[in-house]
Design a protein around this nucleic acid. Structure first.
Lengths: 191, 191
DNA sequence: ACATAAATTTGACGCAAGTCAAATAATCAA
DNA sequence: TTGATTATTTGACTTGCGTCAAATTTATGT
């Protein structure tokens, strides 16, 4: 696990029970079936979605082509950051790729607790810091790696994505065509 | 100006004087000549750099090729986010592209003030939120636009970059070659 | 002003990766 | 099992953009 995420988790586990109970008042557990949308463009993102079970992705459409920006597994948090922080309509979809179980963390409640307890504010800030550096890193991958390097990098850093998801989604996450991904794989297999 | 940045500025301007004086204790004004490095790979980023005058850029090297990630003008804040938040060695350069005057905001002092005053913590968080969504947006530009679209987009959204900086740097910011940029421009001029 | 260097443009060429189309392979329903 | 969808692979072709090299323009120092 990423060391910064680990730090965030460790801190979360040491929140005092007072804080925890207030926070948990804003939690709702829900299940969704494969193919459900948890957010669509135009809707305002009013919650963090904590994935407890299953796989979720975020993607946007550009000229009818789907571009997957993030893929979430157990313990990851799905959110449309710009919609959430500006409380403006999202331009992304958040979709269940399997049957899922998630915990929905309501914006307003979370906001109230953050304002009351500095340590929760700090945790939220750390989460956003992680989010920012993750995107910075991902941009760098697009700027410095070609298609097959991105594939190999993904295979190494996020093997679950390669192992568990259909080619269509892997390709859209790497921002390459289905055909190119297929060729990359066959070249790798034959060498 | 970006509306979120505007909100951050407005809030900054309404901090009470007590907070301001404590903050300003951690400010140092400095001048640097063109070509100076304010941060190099391997160094830990221990401050925010507020640009008061001149132009600054952040870039990294990949196989001897320079890739410019950000360009800062008056009132922008230069920082290596991942080095700063993890207090680990940076992998980027921060360079003065002109004579510059900057205000250096010390990490430790800022950290102390943040912990003491919630409104400062919130401002810092808002800054990071902006940083995150900016990178998300920039990644999207690389995923959806070709070289000339990126150039036109830059021309529209950041005209100063196109107007004030040499081709080398514009190209490295767009992540295209010098030659390609030159051809894009001549095609645009002749149509 | 002149020489030398640096920045920018232009030309020729190659290749990574996209598109369109067709062929297999895998999945699913009845 | 069989036929029908859907997913994946393979082939043929095109193209945007990179690289290398040379020409031209602009900047710099003495």
């Amino acid at each position: 696990m990423n060391p910064y995420i680990k730090r965030i988790k460790d801190l979360s586990n040491h929140l005092d029970s007072q804080v925890l109970t207030e926070l948990e008042g804003g939690f709702v557990d829900k299940k969704f079936s494969k193919g459900s949308y948890l957010l669509r463009p135009g809707q305002v993102c009013t919650s963090h979605l904590l994935v407890r079970k299953g796989i979720v992705r975020k993607f946007y459409k550009h000229n009818d082509k789907e571009i997957t920006t993030e893929i979430y597994f157990h313990d990851d948090v799905a959110i449309s950051m710009d919609s959430y922080i500006m409380q403006k309509p999202a331009d992304v979809f958040i979709e269940a790729l399997t049957e899922i179980e998630i915990t929905i963390i309501d914006y307003r409640r979370f906001d109230t607790v953050k304002k009351k307890y500095a340590e929760v504010m700090i945790l939220d800030k750390m989460f956003i810091e992680y989010y920012a550096t993750w995107f910075e890193q991902r941009l760098k991958e697009f700027q410095t790696m070609n298609a097959s390097q991105r594939y190999l990098n993904l295979f190494e850093k996020e093997p679950r994505i390669v192992q568990l998801l259909p080619v269509t989604i892997i390709a859209s996450y790497l921002n390459i065509s289905l055909e190119t991904l297929s060729r990359i794989r066959s070249r790798l297999a034959s060498s």
